[in-house]
C-alpha cells in the first residue's frame, strides 16, 4: 500500500508545494492538510513545510502552534506519528515543545540563502534512515531566523543521545549553536531541519538530488524496513 504523507498549508506557507512534490517523487501519495482542519485524513506521516506561517508575527511558528491541525499533529507525534518540520516547520515544532530549544534571529542579522553542505549525524530517525551516518549532502538553506539555541544541558543531552540529526559543514550560515542544522525527539519520529531537502530532489531546480533521502527514508520507515 502506498504511504500517505500529509503536507500542511498554513496561511503564509511557501514550500508546501515543493514538499508535496518531493514526497510524490519519492513515491508517496500526498494528502494536502489545511491549518484550520484538525482532521489528518488518515495520513501515515506529516510534513510541516517552510515559509512564513501567519506572517511570522510575534515569533516564527508561535501562532501556527495553536492552529487546529497542530493539536492533532502534536497528539499524534507524541504517540509516534512521524513528523518532519522544515525551516518554518522546525520553528513550529520547537514552539509546540515537540522539539527542545528555539530558533532565533540569524546572528549576523542577514537572511541567508545558499546551497549548504550538511553532515548527516544520525541515520537512525524515521526521516534519515536512507542516509549513511556521516554522509555529506548539499541542499539549499534559506532563513532569517535559523539560529538554533538551547541551554548547555539540552545541547549536551542532544549530542549524547544521538539526537543531532544534521550539522552545517563549511561555514555556519546562521550562528546555530554547535553548528546544529537539525534535531530529533527522543523517539526519532519527530525531526526538525532548518535547510530545505525538498528543494534538492530534481536536477533541473536543485543543487543536487541529496534531499530526496528524507522522503525515501520515511517511506522505508513506514514500510517497516529496518534502518
Amino acid at each position: 500500500m502506498t504511504a500517505r504523507i500529509g503536507v500542511v498549508t498554513f496561511p503564509g506557507s511557501l514550500d508546501d508545494r515543493d514538499a508535496a512534490r518531493a514526497a510524490r517523487i519519492a513515491g508517496a501519495e500526498v494528502v494536502s492538510l489545511w491549518h484550520d482542519d484538525p482532521d489528518l485524513h488518515g495520513v501515515d506521516a506529516v510534513v510541516l513545510p517552510g515559509g512564513f506561517s501567519y506572517g511570522d508575527y510575534l515569533r516564527c511558528g508561535a501562532i501556527a502552534r495553536f492552529a487546529p491541525v497542530m493539536g492533532t499533529i502534536a497528539a499524534g507525534a507524541r504517540a509516534g506519528l512521524p513528523v518532519l518540520g522544515i525551516c518554518n516547520g522546525f520553528q513550529i515544532l520547537c514552539e509546540a515543545h515537540l522539539l527542545p530549544g528555539a530558533l532565533t534571529r540569524n546572528q549576523h542579522l542577514h537572511f541567508r540563502n545558499r546551497d549548504q553542505v550538511l553532515r548527516i549525524e544520525s541515520a537512525g530517525t524515521a526521516w534519515t534512515n536512507a542516509y549513511q551516518p556521516g554522509q555529506e549532502i548539499l541542499i539549499p538553506v534559506k532563513n532569517g531566523e535559523g539560529c538554533y539555541v538551547a541551554d548547555e544541558r539540552t545541547l549536551d543531552e542532544l549530542e549524547a543521545t544521538g539526537r543531532v540529526v544534521a550539522r552545517y559543514l563549511g561555514g555556519n550560515p546562521n550562528g546555530s549553536l554547535r553548528d546544529i542544522a537539525g534535531i530529533s525527539n527522543e523517539a526519532g519520529n519527530v525531526v526538525g531541519l532548518m535547510p530545505h531537502p525538498e528543494h534538492a530532489v530534481e536536477a533541473l531546480t536543485g543543487p543536487s538530488l541529496d534531499g530526496l533521502g528524507f522522503f525515501t527514508s520515511i517511506l522505508k520507515h513506514l514500510a517497516g524496513v529496518p534502518a
Binding site: L58, A62, I63, F66, E95, P100, A102, T104, V149, A150
Partner: peptide, 8 residues
C-alpha cells in the same frame, strides 16, 4: 503560552 517563549 503565547506572548513569550520561555525557552529564550
Amino acid at each position: 503560552k503565547l506572548l513569550a517563549n520561555p525557552v529564550i
